[in-house]
Design a protein around this nucleic acid. Sequence first.
DNA 1: AAGCTCCTCAACCGCAGCGTT
DNA 2: AAACGCTGCGGTTGAGGAGCT
Length: 322
Amino acid sequence: MGHLCCAKQKVKRGLWSPEEDEKLIDHITKHGHSCWSTVPKEAGLQRCGKSCRLRWINYLKPDLKRGSFSAEEERIIIDVHRILGNRWAQIAKHLPGRTDNEVKNFWNSCIKKKLMAQGLDPKTHNLLSSSRSVTTMNNNSDELSRFGYGQSVHPAPFTISPPIKSFDKMKHAGSVDHCGFNSSAAGAIPVPNFQCQQDNMISDHQLLMGFKDQMIDNSQGSFDFTANGGSSSSSVDYTNVSSSCFGHQQASGFSCLDENIWHEGAMEALNSKQGLQQGQAHQVEASYATTLDLEMIESAFLAAEAEFCSGTTSMENLQWDC
DNA sequence: AAGCTCCTCAACCGCAGCGTT
DNA sequence: AAACGCTGCGGTTGAGGAGCT
């Protein structure tokens, strides 16, 4: 369906002139934009309402941040994109002053190339198939140990992570140690989430999300993750924290994000059945949430984990079933 | 200087979703 | 329920600038 506002009238197209900008700014400032379709006429512009809206949102709005993206912004984009995919508008919400169009352009012109140069698939954030990828490995012990997965320590190329509350249950039942490993299971099966952060580091409204599709330096002996400074607002406030507690070499990209991102990411993973079904190891983890959805998510995680750990399915065959 | 290629990014297009009639 | 109008979103395009030959 075309845009009737455009089809009905002869409208100007292409780049906006300073005079047009001025007219639009003047009109929006004085009258707002309750109905974009009427804005051009009211502002004396030969444009369609849609074009006016776009010009305002992407260029003229007073609180827009111009200029190149900072390293921090770039990192946020990559982190959130890994969870949400090409949802530019959602990603832009976490970058004050940036528009979806700007984020999209930046992604396509810069980040995408950077990731590919690093051998990462910009869509999945996994290693490209031409690289040696943990996510595409079967449970081949040679391959696993080659990449640092000692059989006695960590048999699986991924862990599945239910909310922290389930960890607490297990902890109280005495089945896990403080690094999240199931001490009673042969081979120290990695138990859901928690991943060693101290309990008091995550507040009631914070979420720890991690992606396990990359290796960390074996000699490093520690990994970095980020933690939210304590606010439950929608802003993403990163404070680098380091921990040496996570003994095996399987994690990267931990970020504390707000609940909206978590819910979008988690529900996306569940609804689209991405992640395990596609052999990706970057399934979302959450360490905490309070909604009913979490019960379902937790069940799904636990069921999938049980299936994997019992050996009834390979990673490639795991299905979300919820 | 001219011509060409590559890159960036503002703008457009088509579609989906939602509310109203 | 269907048609319509509006808004918002993501993919794509193309003008123009930068860099190279």
